[in-house]
Design a protein around this nucleic acid. Structure first.
Lengths: 116, 116
DNA sequence: GGTCTACTTTAGTGATAACTAAAATACAGA
DNA sequence: TCTGTATTTTAGTTATCACTAAAGTAGACC
């Protein structure tokens, strides 16, 4: 598969991007949120997204945490957000405010994260 | 076919967009410039592009003149031009334009409704 | 009307991408 | 080590899309 536009063209992958736009999520939670697709298919999409630098992956014990790579998506950000609607934009603002309040995060390796 | 990203994802359609980005071109000249595809296929792409508002069409006697709809493409403009801007692309562009110009040699009379 | 050029539409084909199910891998904890 | 959980990878199927060839449509000029 060739370029970024081809990767972004698939609705399923845009859906995944939207999910990890704000929060870092483990693959399982992405799978659960999508609901109507197998874990394998989600994993394949994540691999493609990562190969094109659109998401970042980070290990946490057995889990793989994914997050949107906003820098790479910057040229499309306006368009994507328009597509996703105002709700996401509001969430994004909240997220940024939260992060600003939290300050720098301790980057150490975490064995287990509290369930949400 | 669903959205604009799906339409832009196809390399052939981006190629067509590039050709009509600056100049209004008749379908035949687009076909000639592409070179390795049938007229029918080009026409199908043009239909899709027009259906999504990415190009405009205007009749001139038997011909259909197409031009990029820059307003609709504005969100992607930077990205597309960056893609089209690299050296290899520029070389390719020169070759294509030469071939396109060679094509419609003034053999017969021109249409009465003449060129702008 | 008839013919020419310019283009579009239709029907059908092959390549590919998205999917599923199942096997394989990775890591944590007993 | 064995077991359970989380995820990836592989093999195979189905649906879709870009394509070709050929028939169809439109306007200009005779």
């Amino acid at each position: 598969m060739a370029g970024i536009l081809e990767v972004l063209a698939a609705p399923r992958r845009r859906e995944i991007l939207r999910l990890v736009w704000r929060d870092e999520l483990p693959a399982g939670e992405i799978h659960r949120a999508l609901g109507d697709v197998t874990f394998g298919a989600v994993s394949q999409h994540l691999r493609l997204l990562e190969a094109h630098g659109l998401v970042s992956r980070r290990g946490d014990a057995q889990r793989r945490l994914y997050s949107a790579n906003r820098k790479a998506l910057a040229p499309f950000r306006g368009w994507l957000e328009a597509m996703w609607g105002d709700a996401l934009y509001k969430l994004k603002l909240v997220a940024e405010l939260e992060q600003a309040r939290r300050g720098p995060q301790p980057k150490g390796r975490r064995t287990r994260r509290s369930r949400r």
